[in-house]
């Protein structure tokens, strides 16, 4: 077989596998979230469809597809439909640059477990995810509902403010690793757990964590869909599968956020005190283990997000802005400055 055909096949297979895994995972997080929330709240949660309710996401998906498609009369039809479509597309794109694991060998060639190893990977992801706000704004505006509009306005202000802090917190990480590629950032943390950025950059991590929590639009930052004030905010008028698309993309964003935390601050697929390369395992087995480690770490942070959501109350709009601009931004700047000075001197 010709070389380029194999290359294309491998790329295609990776892409399909990635998106399959992500979509499936996002669907199961809906179940996970409901189950964990139930345990926090002293109840059982959905446990009727299949064993432990494992078929619940499937049932939900079918339900969403079978529901009647309703488009409000005064909505701007084109934009109304564009909103969720755009949102889910943009939610999926960052996964092109996120590595799931180390390398494996397929058909005699080394394959990175990553769709594409961009040398500006992180920048690319941040750039793409900031377009995500358009999905919310268009959806909120086009449904011609005051609550949706309020939600969209809140959301855009929130996402834009917190992106700045997030970017500055990340700049300190870039300074240390000397690269913008996701893979290089992970490899820079590989030596020992003490090289994980969470220990090197504790302040930066806190700022980044809070910002990314705000980016995912979840409690305590879920002002865009604050159900007690704005019904459900920007997707109030959305039903059936259009709602499912919004919901699914929020969960995809959640996984993206967890994956980012893992690869930027918790050493990616590195196992503490274990060097996979020196164990004498075959390359493919080591690659598989690295994937599992990465998924477990990411899954843990998904759980942390769920945990936070079902514990904390929600900020008010002005408090959110104060936190972003008056507390987190100065902290991020201090962190960046300190890191720069240390990096220059050491």
């Amino acid at each position: 077989m010709e070389e380029w055909i194999i290359d294309i096949l491998i790329s295609l297979a990776k892409t399909l596998a990635f998106f399959g895994v992500i979509l499936l995972w996002a669907a199961y997080i809906t179940l996970g979230e409901r189950r964990f929330a139930s345990f926090f709240q002293n109840r059982l949660g959905p446990n009727r469809a299949g064993i432990f309710g494992l078929l619940q996401p499937l049932a939900d998906g079918i339900k969403f597809m079978m529901k009647e498609e309703i488009i409000p009369k005064n909505a701007n039809r084109a934009f109304y439909l564009l909103g969720p479509t755009l949102f889910i597309t943009i939610a999926l794109i960052p996964w092109a640059a996120i590595p799931f694991g180390d390398t494996v060998v397929i058909a005699g060639r080394e394959v990175k477990l990553q769709i594409v190893d961009l040398n500006v990977g992180i920048l690319f992801m941040i750039a793409v995810s900031s377009i995500g706000v358009y999905g919310i704004m268009i959806g909120g505006w086009a449904s011609n509902n005051k609550y949706s509009l309020l939600g969209a306005i809140r959301s855009s202000a929130q996402l834009i403010s917190y992106e700045i802090t997030m970017g500055i917190a990340l700049a300190a990480v870039f300074l240390l690793s000397g690269s913008l590629s996701t893979r290089d950032i992970i490899i820079a943390q590989m030596q020992s757990p003490w090289h994980w950025n969470v220990f090197v950059q504790p302040l930066g991590f806190i700022v980044f964590f809070v910002s990314i929590l705000a980016e995912t639009n979840r409690v305590p930052f879920d002002l865009a869909e604050a159900e007690s004030e704005l019904i459900v905010g920007y997707h109030t008028e959305y039903g059936a599968f259009k709602f499912a698309m919004y919901m699914l993309s929020e969960y995809i964003n959640l996984i993206t956020a967890s994956a980012l935390i893992t690869l930027l601050y918790f050493g990616g697929w590195g196992i503490p005190f274990v060097d996979l390369g020196r164990l004498g395992l075959s390359v493919n087995l080591a690659g598989l283990i690295s994937v599992i480690v990465f998924l477990v770490k990411t899954g843990f942070f998904v759980f942390v997000f769920i945990w936070i959501r079902w514990t904390l109350p929600r900020f008010r709009y002005d408090q959110l802005m104060n936190l972003g601009w008056k507390i987190l931004l100065p902290l991020a700047l201090v962190n960046l400055f300190g890191t720069a000075v240390v990096a220059l001197l050491v």
Binding site: A37, Q41, R43, V219, L312, P313, R314
Partner: peptide
């Protein structure tokens, strides 16, 4: 009041 501020857990916890 907790629910209206976004903290849903307390309601179901005490409701039990």
């Amino acid at each position: 009041l907790g629910v209206d501020l976004g903290a849903f857990t307390g309601l179901l916890y005490l409701y039990h």
